[in-house]
């Protein structure tokens, strides 16, 4: 374990890229999830179909393929290369936004119909019903699945090592392993622990937000949501 300090410092050099990609990807995911998720519930068929194509198209193709497509095929089509980290955030956001759209749609639909009827009886406009009554309640339901999705996104940032972004996985695999091959076990264990800590940070933040959102609708987070909020796969 003599080289532990070296391992830590080399891996840490990749940390900013991992964190920027995660935070940027999460922000883009949130925006796309709400836009596409609400579009899935639109009364206009055209809007619904466009959103459905986005969701199924991005969920149906492999994220690795999407990454390479944006890095190698898109520049040919548009005529210039996007800054790698931006392209990375774009892929992470586009891909996870498609999954998030279904989370938003499902949560909005889970708000009891009676709440919408209460809002109609008070003559609120369709926009006011959504913003003031439905979404504040739906957001509570979204928190646990979004926590899972964000952890999934964090894990996906490791794929950016394929396209020369020097995040922590690339630091381990390209810089450390060639020099300290016999200590591969320590290097990768350390790397895995770093991801574990980052995912625990995401879960801690999301649980806090869930508590705040649940308190606003006069509820405690359910036992089910607590169990779900522990990083699971997205099918």
């Amino acid at each position: 374990m003599d080289n532990l300090g070296t391992f830590l410092s080399v891996l840490s050099q990749g940390l900013p890229f991992t964190i920027i990609a995660t935070v940027g990807g999460i922000l883009l995911t949130i925006v796309l999830s709400f836009v596409a998720g609400l579009a899935l519930l639109s009364s206009s068929k055209t809007v619904r179909v466009i959103s459905r194509i986005y969701v199924e198209g991005l969920r149906g193709t492999s994220e690795v393929v999407q990454l390479f497509w944006i890095f190698f095929a898109l520049p040919v089509l548009v005529g210039f290369q996007i800054v790698p980290i931006w392209a990375g955030i774009l892929v992470l956001g586009l891909n996870h936004g498609a999954y998030g759209a279904e989370i938003v749609r499902g949560a909005v639909q889970s708000v009891p119909r009676a709440q919408v009827e209460g809002a109609i009886a008070l003559n609120l406009t369709p926009g006011q019903r959504m913003r003031r009554v439905v979404l504040p309640q739906a957001v509570v339901e979204m928190m646990p699945p979004f926590n899972n999705l964000f952890i999934q996104l964090l894990k996906s940032t490791s794929l950016l090592s394929f396209v020369s972004i020097n995040e922590i996985t690339r630091q381990a695999q390209q810089v450390l392993v060639p020099r300290f091959n016999p200590q591969a076990f320590e290097i990768f264990l350390l790397l895995l622990v770093m991801y574990l800590i980052l995912s625990l940070v995401i879960t801690a933040i999301m649980r806090t937000l869930e508590r705040v959102a649940a308190a606003r609708v006069g509820r405690r987070p359910s036992a089910r949501s607590r169990r779900q909020a522990t990083g699971a796969g997205v099918a």
Binding site: K155, T157, S158, T169, Q173, F185, F188, Y195, S199, T230
Partner: peptide, 22 residues
């Protein structure tokens, strides 16, 4: 289970690929 779920598959692939030979 929690540890494996919370960390990237790619890193686990590398882990097996580089660590098993050692």
């Amino acid at each position: 289970v929690e540890f494996i779920r919370s960390t990237p598959l790619l890193v686990q692939v590398y882990f097996l690929f580089f660590v098993l030979p050692t």
